[in-house]
Simulated scan of single mutants.
Amino acid sequence: MKINEYLLADPGTAPVPPNNSSQYRVTSGEFFYDFCFLKQLRLETLRAQRSKSTLSIILLTLDKETDAESINMNEILGVVREKTRDTDISGFVNHKSLCVLLPDTDETGAKEICAKLVNETSQFSITTSSYPDHIFESLAKNGCVRPDAFPFELWDSGDAPDASSFKFLLKRGVDIVGSIIGILAFMPVMLITALAIKATSPGPVIFSQTRLGKQGTPFTFYKFRSMHVNMDNQIHREYVQDFINGNHAKTNQGDAEKPLYKIKSDPRITRVGKFIRKTSIDELPQFFNVLKGDMSLVGPRPPLPYEAEKYQAWHLRRILEMKPGITGLWQVEGRSKTEWNDSVRLDIRYIQNWSLLFDLKILLRTVKEVLRCRGAM
């Protein structure tokens, strides 16, 4: 059976996909989930990233005042198919929503197709969005990815909900236990560090900063302050832009054999700051981020909003699919010797292959790297 036969089947009556993959169609409470459609959405998103093309979607949601039982959703979907192109992909999101994927279509093209649907689908509210255009617009205007930058979650793992939830539940449990142990174990070090910072330079002990978490959600990120207060971040902004653009002549502070992608002799850093950066002590307050649930012990690096604005479409995967981590595959395999695109590939490789055992291996390697002070400044 072809994929469209699953995408277009009436909610709740679709046949079970081949190979006993019953996970694709699940009814949970009042919501009907079409995992085959979500999987296709994910594939189209990846295709858009790799081809640097635009993917638009149209989401049709039944108005709250309309009784869902009085509407034949299968007939509505048939009308949608007649008004859209053969290359467009349509399917059910739940028992009140339909979605149309528009490959290689920008916002203007999506609105033209919407105009054809308005009269035939008057009982529905229609939302359009374009990937990745609306995400980058949201980053530029708001410093984060607004929930309405894309009408619904794009980055579904493709797993059955029970299996996926159980894996992430276990990961969250390890994060809670690990962060509590980390806070208790390093409390003496953190107290000494706080006293040293307070005694040697004016300003707060903790430096808080807005970073982007999973799906571009902003959160307050904690570190021990390693810089003088009220310093201009223009140095870092310019460096980040050159780094992401691959301008190695400006960003490589080492040489061809031993590259170092880090700002050397940064005038903003205090004497104590140099030491706590070198030893990674400045990262210890992030255990509180993990305990709060903003971060994980292991995951991609959390970017600054002005950093994410400079991303290419495929770079977005590192902030959209997983919680950021205190450490990650980039930190143990690349760190400051790795150019930008390779560091993103390491984060994506982690996202694709993560497991609790993989997390444990990265945590053990992190201890080794911290003790060696490799790549830290």
Results as ranks from 00 to 15, higher is better:
residue 56 S to F: 06
residue 56 S to P: 01
residue 56 S to Y: 02
residue 57 I to Q: 09
residue 58 I to Q: 01
residue 59 L to R: 06
residue 59 L to S: 08
residue 60 L to D: 02
residue 60 L to H: 04
residue 61 T to P: 07
residue 61 T to I: 07
residue 62 L to E: 04
residue 63 D to I: 09
residue 63 D to H: 13
residue 64 K to Q: 14
residue 64 K to G: 05
residue 64 K to A: 13
residue 65 E to F: 10
residue 66 T to Q: 15
residue 68 A to R: 14
residue 68 A to Y: 10
residue 68 A to V: 13
residue 68 A to M: 12
residue 69 E to Y: 13
residue 69 E to Q: 14
residue 69 E to R: 15
residue 70 S to H: 01
residue 70 S to V: 03
residue 71 I to D: 01
residue 73 M to N: 07
residue 73 M to E: 06
residue 73 M to I: 09
residue 74 N to M: 10
residue 74 N to V: 08
residue 75 E to G: 03
residue 75 E to L: 13
residue 75 E to D: 11
residue 76 I to W: 08
residue 76 I to Y: 09
residue 76 I to C: 10
residue 77 L to A: 08
residue 77 L to T: 09
residue 79 V to G: 07
residue 79 V to H: 10
residue 81 R to K: 10
residue 81 R to G: 06
residue 81 R to C: 13
residue 81 R to E: 07
residue 82 E to Y: 06
residue 82 E to R: 11
residue 83 K to I: 04
residue 83 K to H: 07
residue 84 T to S: 02
residue 85 R to C: 10
residue 87 T to I: 13
residue 88 D to W: 02
residue 89 I to C: 02
residue 89 I to F: 00
residue 89 I to V: 11
residue 91 G to F: 04
residue 94 N to G: 04
residue 94 N to E: 06
residue 94 N to R: 00
residue 94 N to F: 01
residue 95 H to G: 09
residue 95 H to E: 08
residue 96 K to I: 10
residue 96 K to F: 05
residue 96 K to G: 09
residue 96 K to V: 06
residue 96 K to W: 05
residue 96 K to T: 10
residue 97 S to W: 04
residue 97 S to P: 05
residue 97 S to R: 05
residue 98 L to V: 01
residue 98 L to Y: 00
residue 99 C to Q: 04
residue 99 C to N: 05
residue 100 V to G: 03
residue 100 V to H: 00
residue 101 L to W: 03
residue 101 L to Y: 00
residue 102 L to A: 00
residue 103 P to E: 05
residue 104 D to V: 11
residue 104 D to H: 07
residue 105 T to Y: 00
residue 105 T to Q: 01
residue 105 T to K: 03
residue 108 T to P: 12
residue 111 K to G: 03
residue 111 K to E: 13
residue 111 K to F: 06
residue 111 K to N: 14
residue 114 C to S: 12
residue 114 C to E: 15
residue 114 C to Y: 04
residue 115 A to C: 12
residue 115 A to M: 14
residue 116 K to F: 07
residue 116 K to C: 12
residue 116 K to P: 12
residue 116 K to M: 12
residue 117 L to Q: 06
residue 117 L to H: 03
residue 117 L to G: 02
residue 117 L to S: 03
residue 118 V to Q: 14
residue 118 V to D: 08
residue 119 N to C: 11
residue 119 N to H: 14
residue 119 N to V: 11
residue 119 N to F: 15
residue 120 E to L: 12
residue 120 E to T: 13
residue 121 T to I: 15
residue 121 T to Y: 06
residue 121 T to A: 14
residue 122 S to Y: 09
residue 122 S to C: 09
residue 122 S to K: 14
residue 123 Q to K: 13
residue 123 Q to V: 07
residue 124 F to K: 00
residue 125 S to Y: 11
residue 128 T to K: 02
residue 128 T to D: 00
residue 129 S to A: 15
residue 129 S to F: 03
residue 130 S to K: 02
residue 130 S to R: 03
residue 131 Y to D: 01
residue 131 Y to S: 02
residue 132 P to F: 05
residue 132 P to Q: 06
residue 132 P to L: 05
residue 132 P to I: 04
residue 133 D to K: 13
residue 133 D to M: 10
residue 135 I to Q: 05
residue 135 I to G: 01
